[in-house]
Structure formats: structure tokens, C-alpha cells
Amino acid sequence: MDETEMVQYAKEGDLDAFNRLVLEYQDLAFNVAYRLMGDPAAAEDITQDAFISAYRKINSFKGGSFKAWLMRIVTNAGYDELRKLKRRPTVALEPVTNEDEEIESPVWLTDPGETPEHTIEREELNSAIQNCLNDLDFEFKTIVILVDVQGMNYSEVAQAVSKPLGTVKSRLARARIKMQDCLRGFGELLPSSFRLESEGLNR
């Protein structure tokens, strides 16, 4: 059964068919939500709410890219959640040990097959990226996450953010420059292959 058929069955109320789509896209949805929010618990809530919302609104999907349509729901849910957090700021719950020390390597980031050096390197890279993403405005952050982090193409992203292609290109370029400026601040913390040139940053 291909994606179009699954969508059609889901439109007819077949929850199993929709759940196949969920399994297909839950990694993408959760990772987009995580990068938008920077918090796995919030990302979990957003992902679940987005899939519930997608099932209820499935009849409004009129064709095109289902992935882009789903990403629009996820980003909208993320936007709503960020607005709610702005209204009622909360302290993020960092994973801690029994001695109340912050766990630097949460279980969801660990890879049992890698060396400790690699683990540290990856965590530092992840932390640097997330810190820089958190500093971006939502509209720039969304586009850079969808294009550069998740590898979606421009037209899908334009559909997901409901903006013209030109706007997507422009915002992406500006977001990349902002990320570049931010990542430069992490300098030596980044893996050598990811270090930016110290000269030649031009705007």
C-alpha cells in the first residue's frame, strides 16, 4: 500500500492506515519538534498532538506532499507551544542524577556503539546547534530546520510554511548567516571538520 492509498483509507476513517503514516513520519515529526523546542518532553507532546490533529483534519488534505502538510501541522503546534511558554515561562527539566547533578549524556542521545570521545564530540555539536537554533526567530528557525537539518527540498518547505519559494530562499540565506555567526562562537568546541574559517566571513 503506497502513501496515497494510506491517506485515502485514513480519510475514510481507517485508523490503522493512518498509523502506518505515523510510523513512517514520527521520526521526522519528533526531530523537527525537538529542534523547534529544544526540549524532548515538549517535542513528545507536540508530536502526539500533531498526529491527533492531522488525523482529525485529514479530509482537508487535498493532495500534494503529505510530508509537507504534516510538517505544517507540526510547526504550527510548535509555534502555539512556544507562544504558550512565552506567556507562562517555565523552567526546563534537565535530566539529573540522584545527587541532583545534570546528566550530560541523556539516554536518548547515547549510542551504545560509539566511543566516549565520539559521544562527547556529538553532544557538544548538538548543544552548539541547539543553542544557536534557540536564538533564531521562529520563521527562520523553522526553515533552516526543515531544509538543513531534515533535508527537505525548497518546494516542500514552501508548502509547509505556506510561503512563496522566494521567501523561503531569502529566509534560509539569512538564517544560515545567523547560524554561522553563532557557531563561530563555539570555535574549538566543534569538531575540526566543522570549524568555520576565521576570515572571509562576509555579509
Partner: peptide
């Protein structure tokens, strides 16, 4: 070159494993 590195950094951003299935 710097834009290329920036894009590469973002592309290699660690992917997070889903903590559970989100089936309805």
C-alpha cells in the same frame, strides 16, 4: 566555504531517537 560548513554542521546535527511510538 563558510556557508557550506554551516550547512554541513546542521546536516550532521544528531538525529534524536523517538522515545516511543506515536500511533493513535
Amino acid at each position: 566555504n563558510n556557508l557550506k560548513i554551516t550547512r554541513k554542521v546542521l546536516h550532521y546535527a544528531p538525529k534524536i531517537k523517538v522515545p516511543r511510538n506515536f500511533t493513535l
